[in-house]
Amino acid sequence: MTEVAIEVKNIHKEFVLLQNKSTTLKQAVVNIVKKNHKTIYKVLDGVNFEINKGDFFGIIGRNGCGKSTLLKLIAGVYEPTAGNIYVHGGLTPFIELGVGFNPELSGRDNVYLNGAMLGFTRKQMTEMYDEIVAFAEIEPFMDQKLKNYSSGMQVRLAFSIAIKAENDILMFDEVLAVGDANFQEKCIKQFQRLKREGKTIVLVTHSMDTVEQFCNRVLLLNSGKVDFIGKPEDAVRRYNELNLIN
């Protein structure tokens, strides 16, 4: 019997968009008096699925279909309007790489800062530090301020922290295409290693190649609803059909 890593049960998410988003007290008062019309924007509308332990799970869909919102809900950044999400095991989400990075601090300080945000203690980060720096291939620059890094170096550092973060479940939002060909090769190897080690990985992406190469199950979202869930080849075919229709 397969163990479940993440259960998503009948998730609804609505965002309230005020016609005049009230950011001052005056507007707030005016809104009460005028009964300002709210626009409710439904992003997810009853989404159900399960991710099993050891899955390399892809989430695909066209822009604005609710992929990122779903990821943020699983990560606990947003609270659902209705429904429940159960996560079994430790989860490290990467909605964005390098969360908390500060350009005024050195590369070294940023590794620790980002590590803390991801839930690691200073001691744990010290143990992983050398490996992270070696993977990013930027040893000589670790005492330089981050603002002096090229954008490629920044992304490499951020990605290296992410890939070294050991947890049961890892979630990535569109972060595979970083660095030059050589670095990408290394990243792909790391993904294969994670897969071999039986980690659960959730990946939001627009790259159908990545989906077919890595994923064993894929969820296709369309307008906030589950359109298809199953084998990657079928999901990709369905995704291409959707793109043709619209």
Partner: peptide, 16 residues
């Protein structure tokens, strides 16, 4: 976890 986040936030603030 919370303590390490707090420490890093304060440390970063002080350094900056």
């Amino acid at each position: 976890r919370n303590r390490s986040i707090l420490k890093e936030l304060v440390r970063a603030d002080f350094k900056i």
